[in-house]
Design a protein around this nucleic acid. Structure first.
Lengths: 200, 200
DNA sequence: CGATAAACAGACAGGCTTGACTGTTTGTTG
DNA sequence: CAACAAACAGTCAAGCCTGTCTGTTTATCG
């Protein structure tokens, strides 16, 4: 115990402070958007002095880059968690779709969207975002294939799964300014029909 | 002729200047994103003095609001033009999908996306964007139904068209940071198959 | 042709953001 | 416990953006 308390504290505090800053950063991305996420607001939100913030993240890019990674990890975790909560049996396909749609309408996705759009016109940020997003994309694809029990060796199956993911991405984008859950549900119902038919 | 040249000039110049400013604004939205689209850059890009700009658009919001309207109109025009160029006969469905996908990966869509995302965290802008976007959405839906010759009185057809539009929206979003045309084409091929099957 | 108003030009101030910088506290190590 | 390093705190200057303001040119109309 002595060894633990003697060895960890500083490192631990540092870790906690970084985590608080990243959390605050993501919250602000959702609430104020990328441009509205100023370093001052982040430090205020995190309850951290500007000095401390600059100590852990020397520049705004350092903070944002770390936030990108953080968001990516959270997205992966949330997806995995949601997948494990998934019920089996009938209506499995529909449940998988709902899970995906939920993810693509969640705050983490919104934060990722802000980073995504910002990265389009920011080369440095893009270099950071692109590979991570690719990873999430691949992981999500793999997960979806697994959850649907799809056989990708069959022609057209891979494209169908990709289409499914692009669909929920499109639904997610639409939901950011128009919260039309009912419409979304009907579309998912229909898509589930098609998916089951095609994968059978 | 004398009457014409005597009556129009000033109004005409004014119109031209407004158009140049809006064009410059849209260009910058694509190149620099919403946050990077400063009023100063717009006036420089348009070759207009800041004073002249402020005369036509007293505030940045006035400029942006006008740009939203402009983008909306251009989107509508481009879609209509593309639709009229569409070939008939076989592979009609595939051609319609490609047309839609092209639109949702075009610069106007990118500009609209920037406005869209910015509007999410800007109430004033949202009030301006939402109704116009809804209009484009409805028009696009109607156009798609017409081009596909779909019968919306049949159950599930409406949702199928909506899914198609959300799919291309998702593809468009993905294309903003990853230009993966080949992947997109394969997905469209596959979706065309399904669409024809379902609409038959 | 003179008067009036619109169009155009450019300087200026206020507010905000970022990152550098100096100083203080806390933890670690010999 | 003394010395050193990391963590933390807060101020300051430089740069940018927006919108106001004053002045000038161009067109329209009596």
């Amino acid at each position: 115990m002595t060894q633990t308390t003697a060895r960890v504290p500083q490192e631990e505090r540092s870790r906690a402070m970084r985590a608080r800053l990243l959390e605050a950063c993501v919250e602000l991305l959702v609430e104020r958007g990328f441009a509205g996420t100023t370093t001052t607001l982040v430090s205020e939100r995190a309850g951290v002095s500007r000095g401390a913030q600059l100590h852990h993240f020397p520049s705004k890019n350092d903070l944002v880059f770390a936030a990108v990674e953080h968001v990516t990890n959270v997205r992966g975790d949330e997806l995995a968690a949601a997948a494990s909560r998934l019920p089996g049996g009938t209506r499995r396909t529909r449940a998988v779709l709902e899970m995906l749609a939920d993810h693509f309408t969640s705050p983490v996705f919104t934060a990722a969207l802000e980073l995504w759009v910002a990265a389009r016109t920011d080369a440095d940020l893009l270099a950071e975002v692109a590979p991570l997003e690719q990873r999430v994309g691949r992981d999500t694809h793999r997960l979806t294939v697994e959850l649907l029990g799809a056989d990708e060796s069959l022609p057209g199956v891979r494209e169908l799964v990709q289409a499914t993911l692009d669909l929920v991405r499109g639904l997610g984008l639409a939901s950011t300014i128009t919260d039309d859950t009912r419409r979304r549900m009907r579309i998912l119902d229909r898509w589930a029909e098609i998916l089951e038919e095609q994968l059978a």
